[in-house]
Design a protein around this nucleic acid. Structure first.
Lengths: 138, 138
DNA sequence: AAACCAAATCGTAATTATTCCTATTTACAA
DNA sequence: TTGTAAATAGGAATAATTACGATTTGGTTT
């Protein structure tokens, strides 16, 4: 089990959430995949072992993990995608493969270079993503 | 009627599509709003005049306009948003008000500054958007 | 102006991702 | 071991979007 999964399980416990084998398996799934996965990807994986697993369980846990900062998420083609949170210390953006969801971190954040254009707007959030096809998927 | 709407109607005709009053009204709606609107916004507007207008008509025309480059689109909170295409000549990005959908163009495109990070990826597209609340909505 | 035909529209059903709800089960603390 | 809040199953509900057969209409041709 990866370090991030161990930390995530500890974080769950610290916040008073219970340990379940399903949660551990979901976390391991993300722990072993360096990219974005949809709820439906997770469900497909979980069904192998837990044939009767419910939507509710998948979605509830995804949202919980996201709330706790274990996962980060984005929306691609109308579907939410989740991935294990990158090194939490630094702000970053991603290059995302539309085939496999795998990512590469982008160092540059364009917000640093923008000041004068933001006058009058209250800025809440921003998104910078590059989409394409990674080496392995080409 | 705005210049862009006139051009759009001409473009429809040039591509062999028919003129309809519904299309003209939809185009005028976008022509008069400098920001993003959802299918449901358009529908609400169109229902005022055409009480029985169908989803199909709204969506078909939105997609057609998008295909022809009359509208540009983005996805916010799981919902497609459309706006009249900005000056088609130059690549740009947007500051988007989450309240009213109105936009401000951003001059800077971060892609210019990124080269070394893209190796091995085939780049198809990118998204740079800033979200917040505009002056009028605050 | 009448006829014709492809395009446009209506009305509604189907689809997809997601959320919600209630009854039941389970983790784990006392 | 027992109590209880959390977690889950199973399925219904919602929301945005797409699909499709039947009908109507714009615009061209006769």
């Amino acid at each position: 089990m990866g370090k991030k999964v161990k930390e995530a399980l500890k974080k769950l416990k610290n916040h008073g959430y219970k340990y379940t084998d399903k949660r551990e398996d979901m976390l391991n799934y993300f722990g072993e995949y360096d990219g974005y996965r949809t709820a439906s990807d997770v469900q497909a994986f979980m069904k192998e072992k837990y044939t009767g697993i419910s939507f509710d369980t998948i979605y509830r846990n995804l949202h919980l993990f996201h709330e706790l900062g274990i996962l980060e998420s984005t929306e691609l083609d109308g579907e939410k995608h989740f991935r294990m949170r990158c090194d939490t210390s630094k702000h970053h953006h991603h290059l995302i493969c539309k085939e496999c969801g795998k990512t590469r971190e982008i160092e540059l954040c364009p917000m640093e270079y923008i000041e004068k254009e933001l006058k009058g707007f209250r800025i809440d959030d921003h998104k910078f993503e590059i989409y394409g096809v990674c080496y392995d998927c080409q």
